[in-house]
């Protein structure tokens, strides 16, 4: 019998309180574990579950139930925000996540600013919020993690990304206005999720990386707008996880400036060293998703043990999982954490 429920354990670690052992989670959104094998066993399938709150809730619980992850994460894609902001979405399939078919605007100077509250009545926002509500009531011992696509990635999903990246330098005024607007919409969406019972929001912002933006643009755009969204969520009394994709060297020194309650990183980042250099950080990660997909269960266990041994605060996959990853691989990961 564990001393803490999965929900207590995760919330305590995010609050920097003492715990019995690290939680093992897979937040959802960009990093979701809705693998084909789980869906085939339960019949709760994608792409349908992207659009139906009952199915979304069932599949989200199936994932936790079959894999052993100690959270329930919704939704299963990164397109909810861009869709309500006007982009055209490809609905995806069982094995392939939804993606942006066409951005709403060719340039940051052409973005129409709409009232956030009106936007939130459209698209799949209500699907996610209703799913959160069901899950929070039905599974009070699990932390429900609501996932947001970060401000830079959402902006680059409503404005053509090639133009967007150039305009970060060429049209700073409009770039700032658009990202600020997107941040307001994200906070308003997060509020609906928190009102429905979500205790933790996880932000994945794969366009906001050192590799793509470089340190100057990361400092000018990623840090302030991530922090704006984080501050907005903290005001709602929810915790925030931030996932930073890719190599981090060029922006590593700015990571402590991000005000999230935990920082999750990709597999190539040495989390142990990050923690040594910045002991104030709560670290999360970073088991290689290629290793998980490879199906080499002994290596999965061995690397998971190493992460736990390194004192990583929250054990999680390093990035988005391949949908062909097996239940057994994910169980090898979660069981290892629970048995140590």
């Amino acid at each position: 019998m564990s001393a803490f429920s999965p929900k207590e354990r995760l919330l305590r670690v995010l609050d920097k309180e003492k715990i019995d052992r690290a939680p093992v989670v897979c937040p959802g959104g960009m990093m979701n574990a809705a693998i084909v094998e789980v869906m085939n066993r339960t019949g709760h399938t994608l792409p349908e579950a992207h659009h139906d709150d009952t199915l979304m809730a069932e599949l989200a619980f199936d994932v936790a139930d079959y894999t052993g992850f100690e959270n329930i994460g919704i939704p299963f894609c990164m397109t909810v925000e861009a869709e309500v902001l006007g982009s055209d979405i490809d609905k995806g399939s069982l094995a392939c996540e939804p993606k942006i078919r066409q951005e709403a605007y060719p340039s940051v100077s052409q973005v129409e600013f709409k009232e956030p509250q009106a936007l939130l009545r459209s698209g799949r926002i209500n699907t996610v919020v209703q799913a959160a509500y069901r899950l929070a009531r039905k599974h009070p011992d699990y932390p429900i993690i609501g996932n947001l696509t970060g401000p830079i990635s959402t902006a680059a999903s409503i404005v053509d990304p090639m133009s967007f990246l150039k305009e970060l330098r060429r049209d700073k005024e409009n770039a700032h206005r658009v990202i600020d607007y997107v941040s307001d919409v994200l906070i308003a969406y997060a509020q609906l999720m928190v009102d429905a019972g979500v205790k933790v929001i996880s932000i994945g912002d794969p366009t906001a990386t050192g590799e793509i933006l470089g340190p100057k643009m990361f400092e000018e755009y990623a840090v302030p707008y991530l922090n704006k969204v984080i501050d907005g969520i903290h005001e709602l009394d929810a915790a925030v996880i931030v996932h930073i994709c890719g190599k981090m060297q060029s922006v590593r020194h700015m990571i402590p400036l991000i005000k999230g309650d935990a920082i999750s990183t990709d597999a190539m980042v040495n989390l142990k060293r990050l923690k040594e250099d910045y002991p104030q950080l709560t670290t999360m990660g970073n088991l290689s998703t290629y290793l998980l997909e490879s199906g080499n269960y002994e290596d999965v266990s061995r690397h998971t043990r190493r992460l736990v041994g390194d004192g990583i605060d929250i054990i999680a996959p390093a990035c988005g999982l391949s949908t062909s990853t097996t239940i057994q691989a994910l169980q090898a990961m979660t069981q290892t954490v629970k048995e140590l």
Partner: peptide
């Protein structure tokens, strides 16, 4: 790593 993607595109 003096230039990043925005710079290369411009």
């Amino acid at each position: 790593e003096e230039y990043f993607i925005p710079e290369v595109l411009i």
